[in-house]
Amino acid sequence: MATGGRRGAAAAPLLVAVAALLLGAAGHLYPGEVCPGMDIRNNLTRLHELENCSVIEGHLQILLMFKTRPEDFRDLSFPKLIMITDYLLLFRVYGLESLKDLFPNLTVIRGSRLFFNYALVIFEMVHLKELGLYNLMNITRGSVRIEKNNELCYLATIDWSRILDSVEDNYIVLNKDDNEECGDICPGTAKGKTNCPATVINGQFVERCWTHSHCQKVCPTICKSHGCTAEGLCCHSECLGNCSQPDDPTKCVACRNFYLDGRCVETCPPPYYHFQDWRCVNFSFCQDLHHKCKNSRRQGCHQYVIHNNKCIPECPSGYTMNSSNLLCTPCLGPCPKVCHLLEGEKTIDSVTSAQELRGCTVINGSLIINIRGGNNLAAELEANLGLIEEISGYLKIRRSYALVSLSFFRKLRLIRGETLEIGNYSFYALDNQNLRQLWDWSKHNLTITQGKLFFHYNPKLCLSEIHKMEEVSGTKGRQERNDIALKTNGDQASCENELLKFSYIRTSFDKI
């Protein structure tokens, strides 16, 4: 039985969820670079991206490699990797027998973001014989899940209580170790020597080791999670996991709180800001991140802002960003909400898709409305799209047979046209069989910064309504002859009103 693990408890099935942008060198404390989270699957090609990484700022997932063999891993080693800020997950990587050479110096898994409450997941690794993470000293947050690894031993010899604050939620089941077939031998045991430290858990006094050649490092209890030197002297209180010299914040392997210019500090002093819960960055760093993602459509890219001495992905609820200094300031009234469309555009074809934009005031991208039916549609669209004030790209209304009016965009005031449909149009209306009105132009103002209007096959939309939009939106004169079809717009509506004058002759039985 794995020490510190839980057996036999019912657990939810383990679901495996399925960018080499360097964020800056980590400095003297770390020998390499800070790398983003990685999802490495199918083959070993991307694994080489770990070569210079000291910190993975995010998670590391290595999974679904069915053609790899043990010899493929023999020359692979990433000794610079010290810390993973989120979680480490391995799933069905064939041929991998140990992690001792792959990650010989991995010391800390912070667990800032977890995989279903777990910071370390080893699942269905069919050839893994031992973990071998002999320098792993601290899992700051989260638990361990090690399950269905039929060859995995050296679990009962690990004292997880020396690595985690609590072992109650560890789930370590259905491994070879369960069948008591392992016969784990710690260093020196074969020669009758006791080389590794022994600890007591559940009444068992057991030597602690990761492999037959690597003991588990056990520091004096007084050192807590700070770690200790090879001689057993406690590291500085700002260290986490390990250090090369005692009581020196510049000799830590990793930091308990924050890293700044080669030393570990309790908090980031001005003019620095907390970033990702582990390091200090200056304003320029946060500003660069903001600008890199301002026009990016890459998933996970955030326009970072500053709030409460932190550089964070977005302002919290009730705050909006001051564009001059990136500071989050309290909103006066309802907060603006910028919604970034991942692929640059979004099609609204149902109430469900409209709900995804609920509360958005600025759309960074283009909207395509293609709704053919739905219950209580006008009210639903207004509830979900009615706060949109600005669209950076274009607005396209296409084959939306259920629409009679666009009044559900009740606050839309600006279409920038930074991206144009077919390279020309910022407003595009095609084949809307029941569209009769755009907006009530006596109450609604709309500016279209650039781009043209396109109207074709809107049989109940009168040309007068379209011409009014040209005047109000500032697009009059931009359109070419064929942009607004004269014969297919309003051709099934009563669009022309003329005053009919009647004269009559009164007659009676005795007068003409």
Rank of each mutant, 00 (worst) to 15 (best):
D165T: 06
C53H: 00
E33R: 13
C186Q: 02
S317W: 04
T140H: 07
L128R: 01
P334G: 15
D277S: 12
E147D: 12
K310Y: 11
E314K: 12
H214G: 04
M125R: 00
S244W: 07
E266V: 11
S237Y: 08
C219A: 02
K80C: 10
I163K: 02
K191R: 11
M321V: 14
L99Y: 02
P270W: 11
T157P: 08
V200N: 13
T85C: 06
R256T: 08
V265M: 07
C182R: 08
R256P: 02
G241R: 11
R145L: 12
C252D: 00
R141W: 12
S98N: 07
C239R: 00
S324F: 12
N42L: 05
H302C: 08
S213L: 12
S317L: 11
C286R: 00
G232R: 02
K217Q: 13
P70I: 06
P269L: 03
G95A: 13
S323L: 11
R69F: 12
S324Y: 03
G111V: 00
G132M: 01
C223Y: 03
T45A: 06
C335Y: 07
L136M: 02
H214Y: 03
R145N: 02
N308T: 06
I84Y: 00
V173C: 14
C196P: 05
N322S: 15
I109T: 00
R46S: 12
I40R: 00
L44S: 10
C286Y: 03
F283Q: 03
Q303K: 05
R41H: 05
D248P: 01
I172E: 02
L233R: 13
C280Q: 01
I146P: 00
A156Y: 03
Q216K: 09
F275E: 02
E130H: 06
R41T: 14
G232D: 07
P313Q: 12
F205I: 06
Y273I: 02
M83V: 07
Y272L: 06
T107G: 05
D159S: 06
L99N: 00
V144K: 00
F205H: 07
K176P: 14
N179H: 09
N325Y: 09
W210F: 12
D277G: 07
G203C: 05
G188I: 14
C331M: 05
T250N: 05
G183F: 10
I56D: 00
Y304A: 07
C335S: 05
P36W: 15
T140G: 05
G32V: 12
D184N: 05
Y319H: 09
L155I: 13
P70R: 07
G300V: 10
R256V: 07
P316E: 01
P246I: 09
T267R: 03
N325C: 14
N149T: 10
I82D: 07
D248E: 04
Y30C: 12
F275K: 02
R145C: 06
R162F: 06
T194L: 12
N325A: 15
V305Q: 06
L88E: 00
I185V: 15
H212M: 00
L128M: 10
R141V: 12
S54Q: 15
F116L: 04
G192M: 11
G203H: 05
I62Q: 00
F91P: 00
D184A: 14
E33W: 07
N202H: 10
K148P: 01
V200S: 14
I84R: 00
E49T: 09
D39L: 06
K224C: 05
V108W: 09
D277C: 02
C239S: 00
I84T: 00
K217R: 10
Y259P: 01
L332R: 13
C182F: 12
T250F: 13
Y94I: 14
P313R: 13
L155H: 15
Y319W: 15
P220C: 03
V121I: 05
W278Q: 03
S237V: 08
G32W: 12
C331V: 03
P79Y: 10
C234I: 02
T199W: 07
N149E: 00
N170W: 06
D39S: 06
D178S: 07
Y304E: 03
L326E: 05
N105R: 05
V34S: 02
E33H: 11
R297M: 09
I185T: 05
S296N: 15
R279S: 13
V200Y: 13
D288T: 07
L29S: 10
C293S: 03
S213N: 05
S225Y: 06
L326C: 03
N43H: 06
F258C: 05
V121Q: 01
V121M: 05
E314N: 14
D288P: 02
R298H: 07
C186R: 01
I139R: 01
C264K: 00
G58V: 00
S225Q: 05
F123G: 10
L63Q: 15
Y87R: 00
S323T: 11
G142V: 01
E51H: 15
I158Q: 03
E97K: 06
C264S: 00
D75W: 13
H212K: 04
V55W: 02
G241H: 05
T107S: 11
E71P: 11
L50A: 06
K191H: 03
I84F: 00
C264V: 00
F115P: 02
L114S: 06
N150H: 06
P249N: 04
E207P: 06
Y118H: 04
N42M: 08
W210V: 11
K217M: 06
S284I: 05
S324L: 11
C268E: 00
I62L: 05
I109S: 00
P36I: 11
C280W: 00
E97R: 14
S213F: 00
D248W: 02
F275T: 04
C280E: 00
I158D: 02
T229F: 15
D75K: 12
L133E: 00
F103K: 01
P316L: 06
L44H: 09
E147R: 01
Q287V: 10
V200K: 02
N195I: 08
L128H: 00
R69W: 04
C264Y: 00
E124W: 03
T189M: 14
N308W: 08
K217Y: 09
D288Y: 12
V265R: 02
D165N: 06
H48N: 14
C186F: 08
L60W: 01
F258I: 01
T68R: 12
N308P: 01
K100N: 15
C53F: 00
H214W: 08
N135S: 09
R263T: 02
V253G: 04
